[in-house]
C-alpha cells in the first residue's frame, strides 16, 4: 500500500516546504513541526535553479536553500536526518532527477530516494508524455509518481494521466504558479467534478492559505489539501525578522493544525464519504 493509505480514513493535510530553507538545521525543525501539527504526507522540495512552476514565495525559498548549500546529496541526508513518522514525497524538477549519479537517466535518483525512505515523487515539469523512464524507475523501486491535473486537463489527456498516476493526484486548484491566495477558485470544484469517477485520492493544491479554504475544498470532495506558499511565507517572515527557530516552528505547527482542522470540518460537512 503506497501513499493512498494516508488518505484512507480522513482527509489528508499535505504540507510543502523547500528542504534547507533558510538553512539545513532550521529546516529540519520546521518539517518536524509540521508533522506535530498533523501532516499526513509531507512534500519536500529539492530546490532547482529554474523553478518554472513556482511563484515568488517558493522561488525565494529555493534561492535561500540553494544559497545555504542544498544539493541533491544533502537533500538525501536531510531526509535521513528527519525524525518524522509521516510519508515523504520529493518535489523537484526533472533535470536534477535526470543528472543524479550517472547523469543519463532517472534510475539512480529513484534508487537513492527509495533507500532514504522517500515514498513518492512530484515533478512539475514532467508531463505524462515524457514520464515513461521515471515511471519505470518508480515501479522498480516501489515509489509512487504523483501527477498534477491542471484546470486545463480534460478528455484524453486526463485519461492518459490517470493511467500512469499512483499515490494521489495533485489537483491544481487554479491556473498559474504556486502562491497563497485570499480565495478559493471555482476551477477547483470543476476539476474535482471531472475526477469524481477516479478511484485515486485527490489532493488539491495551489493557493490554499487558511483552515477555511481547506474546509471548503474538502467539503467539495477533495481527499486532501496541499499547502505550500502559506507555510513558506511563515518561514520567510521568521527569517527576515530573525525570529528564533522555536518561534517559527511553533507558528508552523499552529498553522498546520489550523489547516488540518479545516480539512476535518470539511469532511464532516460532506453529505457522505465518497470513498470506502
Amino acid at each position: 500500500m503506497g501513499l493512498e493509505r494516508a488518505f484512507a480514513d480522513e482527509p489528508a493535510f499535505v504540507p510543502y516546504l523547500a528542504a534547507g530553507d533558510p538553512n539545513y538545521e532550521a529546516s529540519l525543525e520546521y518539517v518536524e513541526a509540521l508533522a506535530r501539527g498533523g501532516a499526513d504526507v509531507i512534500e519536500l522540495g529539492l530546490p532547482f535553479s529554474e523553478p518554472i512552476a513556482e511563484g515568488k514565495t517558493i522561488q525565494n525559498a529555493i534561492v535561500r536553500s540553494l544559497e545555504a548549500g542544498m544539493t541533491p546529496d544533502r537533500f538525501f541526508e536531510f531526509v535521513t536526518d528527519l525524525d518524522v513518522d509521516v510519508p515523504l514525497v520529493c518535489m523537484t524538477y526533472y533535470n536534477l532527477i535526470y543528472q543524479y549519479g550517472t547523469g543519463d537517466g532517472p534510475r539512480p535518483f529513484v534508487e537513492k530516494a527509495a533507500e532514504v525512505g522517500i515514498e513518492g515523487l512530484v515533478v512539475p515539469d514532467l508531463p505524462a508524455e515524457e514520464a515513461g523512464p521515471l515511471r519505470r524507475a518508480c515501479d522498480e523501486f516501489g515509489l509512487d509518481l504523483v501527477f498534477i491535473v491542471a484546470p486545463t486537463t480534460t478528455g484524453d489527456r486526463l485519461e492518459r494521466m490517470l493511467e500512469q498516476v499512483s499515490g494521489y493526484v495533485y489537483v491544481q486548484a487554479r491556473l498559474g504558479v504556486t502562491g497563497a491566495r485570499e480565495d478559493v477558485d471555482d476551477a477547483t470544484e470543476e476539476s474535482l467534478a471531472r475526477l469524481s469517477d477516479w478511484d485515486v485520492p485527490k489532493a488539491v493544491g495551489f493557493g490554499i492559505k487558511t483552515g477555511d479554504h481547506a474546509e471548503r475544498i474538502v467539503s467539495a470532495g477533495a481527499d486532501g489539501v496541499i499547502v505550500g506558499s502559506a507555510l513558506v511565507d511563515i518561514v520567510a517572515e521568521g527569517h527576515e525578522n530573525r525570529d528564533s527557530v522555536e518561534e517559527v516552528a511553533d507558528r508552523l505547527e499552529a498553522k498546520a493544525r489550523e489547516l488540518k482542522e479545516g480539512a476535518l470540518r470539511g469532511a464532516s460537512e460532506r453529505p457522505q464519504p465518497e470513498r470506502t
Binding site: I52, P124, P127, E129, F147, I148, T152
Partner: peptide
C-alpha cells in the same frame, strides 16, 4: 518538458 497546465 513543461507543466501540465501548459500541455493543452
Amino acid at each position: 518538458y513543461v507543466p501540465e497546465a501548459l500541455m493543452p
